[in-house]
């Protein structure tokens, strides 16, 4: 399944232009990392992928489906998006019910299996009967990720999935990414956390001024360096060290 952005422009109703003439293709099973400064349109980009937002002009095709012609409920079977703020997403009275929601609505045949695996990947199996709001906020973020995993969608899109996570949950997140990548699941991750995600990415999209100033492999991004500087981003220390040590 591919995700295609073709000359996409997006303007909010308050006339604030966010994305301009954005084009790129994400291949099946790829791991796309989207980076850029605060407010550059990264979250908007994710919402365009599942049709919550429609492009002002241009086209977004998800698995061949034009997002302007299909409802989000249909697109969710192809790509499941988590929000930056877990409170915007969580609504069910228990962890179990929250994770069951997507596969049930998408009429997946193997709901129990999908839910159990998602809970176990996110280390939430012991809290499945708890109310989501009784969980500490890092676990609530993992819950939104578990819900997406359980949808069974071939592409998962996460908005700042590591924000506010301590090291223990970061390890959980990293392990689940590795495991799902082995299964052939594709990812689109919006994050400031280059230290965690750059090593998993197969493609990186750097947004600046509403458009892509770089689209390519992490290696090319690091080799040329200019795009990061142009986007006002810095490489985290461990990555800088690793690169120098490998030279």
């Amino acid at each position: 399944m591919t995700i295609e952005f073709i000359n996409v422009n997006f303007r909010y109703q308050d006339e604030h232009q966010v994305l301009s003439n954005l084009s790129f293709v994400v291949e099946p099973g790829a791991f796309l990392l989207v980076i850029g400064q605060n407010g550059v349109g990264k979250s908007t980009l994710l919402k365009l992928m599942n049709g919550i937002l429609k492009p002002t002009s241009g086209k977004v095709l998800v698995g061949g489906l034009d997002t302007t012609k299909h409802p989000t409920s249909r697109l969710a079977a192809k790509i499941c998006v988590t929000f930056q703020n877990p409170a915007d997403q969580i609504f069910a009275p228990s962890v179990q019910k929250e994770v069951e929601f997507a596969p049930r609505n998408l009429k997946r045949p193997d709901i129990d299996e999908l839910v159990s695996r998602a809970l176990s990947l996110c280390s939430l199996d012991t809290v499945r009967t708890k109310h989501p709001y009784d969980l500490p906020s890092p676990q609530r973020r993992l819950l939104t990720i578990a819900s997406a995993i359980a949808s069974g969608a071939p592409y998962l899109a996460f908005d700042e999935p590591s924000a506010g996570l301590s090291q223990i949950e970061r390890i959980v997140l990293e392990r689940l990414l590795q495991e799902l990548k082995r299964d052939g699941r594709g990812f689109v991750v919006v994050s400031h956390d280059l230290g965690l995600f750059l090593r998993h990415a197969s493609q990186v999209l750097v947004l600046s001024g509403g458009t892509n100033i770089f689209f390519g492999s992490p290696e090319d991004l690091l080799d040329q360096g200019g795009s990061l500087r142009k986007a006002g981003l810095k490489l985290p220390l461990p990555l800088r060290l690793e690169r120098l040590a490998n030279r």
Binding site: Y12, D14, H16, Q37, N38, G39, V40, K42, Q84, D159
Partner: peptide, 17 residues
């Protein structure tokens, strides 16, 4: 640069600030 923008229309990092 966000002074005249709607507070509820901002990105996460902007809202935090």
């Amino acid at each position: 640069h966000l002074a005249n923008r709607k507070p509820t229309s901002l990105s996460g990092g902007e809202t935090q600030r």
